[in-house]
Design a protein around this nucleic acid. Structure first.
Lengths: 344, 344
DNA sequence: CTGAAAGCGCTTACAG
DNA sequence: CTGAAAGCGCTTACAG
């Protein structure tokens, strides 16, 4: 077991000063060629690599990005992480991931933990509980300390920072419009409870599409599901309303459950019932029938979020710490309609 | 913008020494009550939190775990991360995640990056390319430097370290046996290419189950798929062999593809063809019919891996750096058969 | 051309 | 009871 070698050890071994070793390894012209080469050879032989922690302390930056998301066993979020990780890696950054489990307390705790020097900036998506409580002090605190934050998907207007989002309302509108274009007029909406910001926006898009097409709005055609595991009855009741010929589901889990329920009830998809879902995941691709979805393009969201954060991080360096007004941007990632079998 | 406050600033402000501040905040009895309380009040007011990086450097441990996995948009792996993250969090550790994208070079690069002080230990699953090349020098190097490594799922005998695995051979055996118990005798195997360690083990289990039941082994009933995207033809050819009444797929993506192909060909699942898959993911639960699977219990694997690593990390502390023989353990996580509609 | 010193933010053994 | 000093591993402005 040979522990990692340090500058100090090399210096001792070679009988030179630590400064000389450091400079040699950084190819400083200050150092005589002979010494430099000697040091370099020795360092190479012992696989010397500078200690990241020491560098972080010295440079006051860690070259790592903190990610805080509600859950990781989730197609969309893992896709975003994938995007972030790839951009980060290209630019020499690592990512450290914390899960909030949709809990406010865990979100706060994890942010505080990481904010104490472990990372240079955050990329995050709000937990349900945080959105419900509307308490964002932990985020503004971090921003106040000068640490950049990029929020994605589940964002809030209450915080002034860079954001990467879909136009959820517009995307929902387009989804519903596409159903209308195919001759469907009695369109139901299956959504989540209201405090999830994106849920609300998607509902707005749905309502607006109906309105613009002069289709009467019927409250009974909207159901809000809190828990996926026991939504069967609610969905059955909705489908029993024979007047329905299409449903817009706010995520693919709802969509596949609807299709399965329809099957059981002898309702044919897409003939009798067209189904379209927000969030393109793996299920939609492999369900029978395959499900038409609106892809949020999580990978792209991740890439963009990482780019924005890193850009801000690297530009801060030369900034003269002036108290200039920060100009934040909100990037809207275009969603993409992926037509499959569940709408014809 | 008020930057984070440091001990130095507090000391200056209160006109005491840094040592006094440090000791006060750590509730040292050395310090007089008055001073201590004064410092604590001040620190609290300014939200003082010690800098993690400085602590890491001082203590020579980071309280963070490095995870290296092939991909993250993958049900099993994200499940494992979830398990790791939760026990890590409980014990005050963070996790930093790097993806190898199944590339040997990225795996090596990322390990070297993290090994330079960023983390206390690794939890990892080998990339395909690494398994193919059988080059594990980067892992033994890290271990040699005294950094503990726990491998899971895709492991190798070439490296001596703690491991968490399924008994892939046995699980495959049991899966095939369950098909046989249901009267199926002409069982096909759809697997991956051989260099993936678990793929090979599952094949062995399949073969053995046939043998033990005196069912003739037919090489034509085994197909190896390299790329999921264009395996349709291979599967069709297999299913055309009317003699087949069951198939054991090495993952759920293969299984669902088989079911869809069967449907198209007018073959009924499970009546004409029973399908069972390794790896319980989200697709199996929502496919039509739902798919019987062998759950690898990724969450549990993650939990166990994290526990082993942290235990080793914390026990090392008091260990007197003796050159005692390390005793590594391999924990086998029992798989679970989850019966659904695709086998009857 | 080389090295001593200061410093990043912290802790702790040791003086006083 | 308080503080100066050394040290974790590194970099760099400054002397010599």
């Amino acid at each position: 077991m040979k522990k990692k070698v340090t500058l100090k050890q090399i210096a001792k071994e070679l009988d030179v000063s630590i400064s000389t070793v450091s400079k040699s390894l950084r190819n400083s012209l200050e150092i005589g060629e002979e010494t430099r080469l000697k040091v370099q050879a020795f360092a190479k032989f012992y696989h010397y690599k500078p200690n990241n922690i020491a560098l972080s302390l010295k440079n006051r930056k860690t070259k790592t990005i903190g990610i805080i998301i509600p859950e990781i066993v989730h197609y969309f979020f893992s896709t975003v992480i994938n995007g972030i990780e790839h951009v980060a890696n290209e630019k020499g950054y690592s990512v450290i991931i914390c899960l909030s489990d949709d809990s406010f307390d865990k979100e706060v705790l994890n942010m505080e933990l990481l904010a104490n020097g472990s990372i240079d900036g955050f990329i995050m998506s709000l937990s349900k509980e945080t959105q419900q409580k509307k308490d964002f002090h932990h985020i503004s605190e971090v921003i106040n300390q000068g640490m950049p934050v990029v929020m994605f998907d589940r964002v809030t207007n209450a915080i002034h920072c860079d954001k990467v989002i879909n136009n959820d309302e517009l995307a929902a509108y387009e989804a519903v419009q596409s159903l209308i274009d195919k001759g469907r007029r009695k369109i139901a909406l299956v959504t989540t409870v209201d405090y999830v910001s994106v849920g609300k926006l998607r509902t707005d898009g749905y309502t607006k599409a109906l309105l613009d097409n002069k289709i009467p709005f019927d409250e009974n055609r909207i159901i809000k599901i809190e828990n996926i595991d026991n939504c069967g009855i609610k969905i059955e009741k909705l489908l029993e309303d024979k007047a329905i010929d299409a449903v817009f589901a706010v995520n693919e889990l709802f969509a596949v459950t609807i299709i399965k329920t329809a099957n059981k009830m002898g309702i044919k998809v897409p003939e009798d019932l067209a189904v379209i879902a927000f969030t393109d995941g793996i299920i939609s691709k492999y369900s029978t029938p395959t499900i038409t979805t609106i892809s949020q393009r999580g990978m792209e969201m991740g890439r963009v979020a990482a780019k924005i954060l890193i850009e801000r991080l690297e530009s801060e360096e030369d900034e003269l710490e002036e108290d200039e007004e920060e100009v934040y941007k909100t990037v809207v990632i275009e969603t993409r309609l992926i037509e499959r079998e569940s709408t014809n």
